[in-house]
Computed example of a mutant assay.
Amino acid sequence: MRIFMIWIFLPFLISEPPITWGFYAHSLINRLAVFSLPEEMIGFYKPQIQYITENAVNPDRRRYAVEGEAEKHYIDLDYYGDSALQTLPKYWNEAVEKFTEDSLRMNGIGPWSAYFSFLNLTKAFESKNSAAILRLSADLGHYIADLNVPLHTTVNYNGQLTDQVGIHGFWESRVPELQAKDYPLWVGQAEYVEKPQLALWEAVAVAHAQVDSVLFIEKELTKNFSPDQKFSYEERNKLTVRVYSREFTEAYAQALDGQIERQMKKSVKMIADFWFTAWVNAGQPDLFDLNGAKVDEEDFVVKPELKVRDH
């Protein structure tokens, strides 16, 4: 547990990467999405909100235990060149035919994988498999939220190419941890998504367009802070740990002009919309007789041989 907590708050002090969006942010995003569901769905989801919330980070834990999981969390668009969004096939079979599956997996399969999770959730609704509905809802929420993080769309995912190592966890963990409590994240009622695959790619495009500002603003701001001003020490889980200072974090968030709040809000909205769309596509099954569902906890056995990066 100590190692896990350090991963969340100290991405720049350890060799292993942080939990994406941070435990706090992923959990909050999944939790808030539940309240946008219609009456026919919230009666099933709300009693299970603790599961949806607490298991929001299971896909990240799975990265260290299951081969093939890590690449589901990102896509390195810039690997494919400046026109990646125009040249990359949006449909999996076409992409495999053009680039091969091994090549695609090497550079991240986030949007394609999220769509497969959406299809699996639809099937779970069709069969009224309550355990699968809950597990896949939590997973899909995680994958969609990841696609809304700018640094999940670039080769320079942790600032390692621009001398900004640690920015990944800073943007998606430290800032939300200090500021998300003040974000107005209510997004209204869930809406039907006509073209889910294209909606996922649109989210990736919006996130990727913000990569430059995420990196540039942090680098410029650093010029105005000495190292002892940029970082500070806090007590975490009975450990004294080095973190980005509150002053630097607040200055960065202000300079981003609400960017992180907007991306969190977009994540909440998309997740609710995709859950709702999966239910509608499954024929709007009655979920009220599924109350009381129990889901077996996943057993995560870390495999040290797996190569896992900061996504």
Results as ranks from 00 to 15, higher is better:
I271A: 06
E235V: 15
E250A: 00
L256R: 06
L140V: 02
Q254L: 15
D78R: 05
Q284A: 13
D146R: 04
N30M: 08
L10V: 14
S232K: 04
S113A: 14
L104F: 08
F225K: 10
A203Y: 07
F125L: 12
E298N: 14
P38Q: 07
L215Y: 00
G110S: 12
E220D: 14
A180K: 03
V243K: 06
S117M: 07
I14C: 09
A251P: 06
Y24S: 13
L256G: 01
S15A: 12
D310F: 10
Q259S: 12
L32N: 10
A33C: 07
H26C: 12
Y80W: 11
S137D: 03
V34K: 08
L28K: 14
L151F: 02
I3G: 08
W112Y: 15
F12V: 08
V295R: 05
L290S: 09
H208F: 11
I6Y: 01
K128E: 08
G283L: 10
A255L: 13
N129F: 05
I144H: 06
F9P: 04
G110E: 09
L121G: 12
I217K: 10
T249E: 05
V165N: 01
G159W: 05
V149Q: 14
W171F: 15
F44W: 01
F118V: 12
E235A: 14
V193N: 08
N58S: 04
A293C: 13
L121F: 07
G188A: 08
R105I: 10
V149T: 09
F276S: 05
A272P: 00
E16H: 14
A145G: 06
I49M: 13
D257W: 01
A65N: 09
K123N: 13
P18E: 15
Y91G: 02
E194Y: 00
P59E: 05
A65V: 10
Q229E: 15
S127N: 14
L140M: 05
F125Y: 15
G68Y: 00
S245H: 03
Y252L: 14
E298R: 13
N224A: 09
D289M: 13
F125G: 10
S27I: 13
D296R: 13
E191V: 06
R246I: 12
R174C: 02
E194H: 03
P184G: 02
G188V: 09
L200H: 00
G283N: 10
N291A: 09
P111M: 00
E172A: 07
P18M: 13
W279G: 06
F116G: 07
E71A: 06
Y74I: 06
M270H: 06
V155T: 14
S113R: 11
E172K: 04
V149S: 15
A84I: 03
P111I: 07
I167Q: 02
N237W: 10
G169I: 09
P89T: 07
A180E: 02
F288K: 10
A138P: 04
T100Q: 06
L140A: 05
Y64C: 09
H142V: 05
E101D: 10
F118L: 13
V241F: 00
E218M: 06
L37M: 00
S213L: 11
